[in-house]
Design a protein around this nucleic acid. Structure first.
Lengths: 200, 200
DNA sequence: TTAGAATATGAGCAGGTGCTCACATTGTCA
DNA sequence: TGACAATGTGAGCACCTGCTCATATTCTAA
């Protein structure tokens, strides 16, 4: 459609630093402003850079969100390596609780996570990104119920992640006093679902 | 904040017709374009009217979405009057299935429903709108488990509606062939959750 | 038939955003 | 130190959108 100008790949350390600064700035702006209202100018300002600098490395806002999501995904993956081993001894209830707890902590540390997760186009463009965690989850489910096909376990993982997403958006909107109750309810719901799926 | 000009309240039949046309147009545009990309000009065009006409009745895009949501909500409420009575004889599993089925049919008939439901500000502004269905649901849940407090039953209703929302967004994105499986899985998940909550 | 109310029109202004490009600065390396 | 590459800057253009308002058209009712 448009013949966009080529973006720079950082060659020096300061280039990489800049990218990191820009992403950190984007995290702040996105979490405070939401995706739509976030402006490239605002990101630049927050990073103490010029708009020009942003466009050296990113085509547009979507690209920034995408890079941030990729970063989050890598971090998430780091936390969940060996998910199966680490949770093997847990009951299904405990598994559900553990999963919810870790995800809650993650979004508290990275408040822009749900923003980029729900950003327009995320669904279509970043399926592969979401998939890493989904596949780790599916593996856990399959190891607990051998009768689940690969597709079935992926579907269970999909619903699980959707429940987390849904919880996250409510969590972000609710007052601090209500959050504990909300989280408990989601743990219960997830446990009920997983129990019915992993029994046997 | 801004002293917006006063909008017109229709006095003649053609005024009401216009509003209906505009909302119908908005439904088309919103479902095809999504909320953010939808433009007042596009809505006017789709309705065969001028931008001026749109601004006679609506302050802005949010107002249009809000009116559409209110319309959907009224329709939904019409379908669910006597929800309790109509479902009293059903088992919890059947209740979950019935609920999912009706909601799926609704969004197939009104593809803009999830768009306005997820539109920015919907959460904050239209709590009351969402609440009607939520309260009907809560009533059903309480009548099935008297030990649930009012707050608890509302929470259960909230999670239930969130599951529906989540299903809807996946449903809209998935291919026709996968939809049946998806819907079945959500029925199962909802049934599991509700069973654990309404048992006793 | 006609006055006045209701409704309809769309050019145009104010304001904002995306993104570029010519130029300035900083880093690297021989 | 000099030469070139890498990075940084921000004024400014092109574009778009929300929304208004002066004006035109249609309706109502006596």
């Amino acid at each position: 459609m448009s013949n966009a100008i080529e973006r720079r790949v950082p060659q020096q350390e300061r280039g990489e630093r800049r990218i990191a600064e820009l992403l950190a700035a984007a995290e702040v702006v996105l979490s405070e402003t939401g995706f739509e209202a976030t402006t490239m100018k605002a990101v630049a300002q927050q990073a103490g850079a010029s708009i020009g600098a942003v466009y050296q490395y990113f085509d547009n806002k979507e690209a920034v969100a995408h890079a941030l999501l990729a970063q989050y995904d890598a971090e998430m993956d780091r936390r969940w390596v060996n998910l199966e081993e680490a949770t093997r001894a847990l009951s299904v209830e405990e598994l559900a609780q553990r999963f919810v707890d870790v995800m809650i902590r993650f979004i508290e540390q990275h408040p822009a996570y749900i923003v980029v997760l729900f950003a327009p186009g995320t669904h279509k463009r970043d399926v592969k990104v979401q998939n890493r965690l989904r596949e780790r989850l599916a593996l856990v489910f399959r190891s607990r119920n051998r009768r689940l096909s690969k597709e079935q376990s992926l579907l269970v993982a999909t619903l699980t992640l959707q429940m987390i997403k849904s919880m996250n958006s409510l969590y972000a909107l609710s007052k601090a006093g209500e959050r504990a109750t909300l989280v408990e309810e989601y743990k219960l719901a997830l446990a009920a679902y997983l129990t019915s799926r992993l029994a046997g």
